[in-house]
Nucleic acid binder design. Structure first.
Length: 214
DNA sequence: CACCAGGCAAGTA
DNA sequence: TACTTGCATGGT
């Protein structure tokens, strides 16, 4: 079976068993962006608490978050963990966008993919996964998001070598799948779900995994 | 108790 | 360049 056929089969198996995941769980490009920073190495449930804190405090807008003292922002997002680091990273991104476009995220996101990706990666605190999550889920641009689960699942199914890095995994998908935002969106979301349910680092539970035998 | 979570940057040699 | 460490809460 070719790589392209294997990747297609993996997708179909996950979708058949788990159904559409309806990602990203956020109501606006702005919320996706904030969530992308807050969820770095962190459970999404904790991110929801953090975002909820911001909303209930009435500061969940671009200008309010940018104007907040960093230490106060850190207190609001405390449940998301790494709160001091993330408060700084979030404001780094907001300040960068302010310098480029003013307080309008949607205008900032309305740029060619390669240019926008470079800009995002130039912000301290925004790495490849965070940048690509914003590109795919906020800007709706066709780029495949790679996370630890993606790497682990491909590795356990023998599709990559251990040392295959972020760009390498991303190329594997983008060279072998149709270049479609909707497909990349659902595929990544399904991989995260399968990872959460069946492909933990030390305690995998392959019994009910939809990818058995692949 | 151990282990984990939708990373990233800085420090070390 | 290639490892290692710090950041931190909350769930299982």
């Amino acid at each position: 079976m070719s790589t392209a056929e294997t990747l297609e089969l993996i997708y179909q198996r996950m979708l058949a068993q788990l159904g559409p995941q309806h990602w990203w769980p956020g109501e606006s490009p702005f919320e996706v962006m904030v969530g992308a920073i807050l969820t770095q190495n962190t459970n999404w449930k904790n991110v929801e608490r953090a975002i909820d804190n911001l909303k209930r405090a009435g500061v969940f807008s671009f200008s309010a978050l940018a104007a907040l003292p960093t230490a106060l922002l850190a207190e609001y997002i405390r449940p998301a963990g790494y709160y001091n680091i993330k408060a700084g990273r979030l404001q780094n991104l907001l300040f960068f966008i302010q310098e480029q476009q003013g307080d309008d995220v949607e205008i900032f996101l309305d740029q060619p993919l390669d240019r926008l990706r470079q800009q995002l990666l130039s912000v301290k605190g925004v790495g490849p996964e965070t940048a690509d999550s914003i590109l795919l889920y906020a800007a709706k641009l066709p780029i495949f998001v790679v996370d630890t689960y993606t790497h682990r699942i491909l590795l356990r199914h023998g599709l990559i070598e251990e040392e295959c890095d972020y760009a390498c995994v991303q190329e594997l998908f983008m060279d072998n799948l149709a270049c479609e935002t909707a497909l990349y969106n659902e595929y990544h979301a399904l991989l995260v779900r399968v990872g959460n349910l069946y492909c933990k680092k030390k305690n995998p539970d392959c019994g009910a995994c939809p990818l058995q035998g692949i």
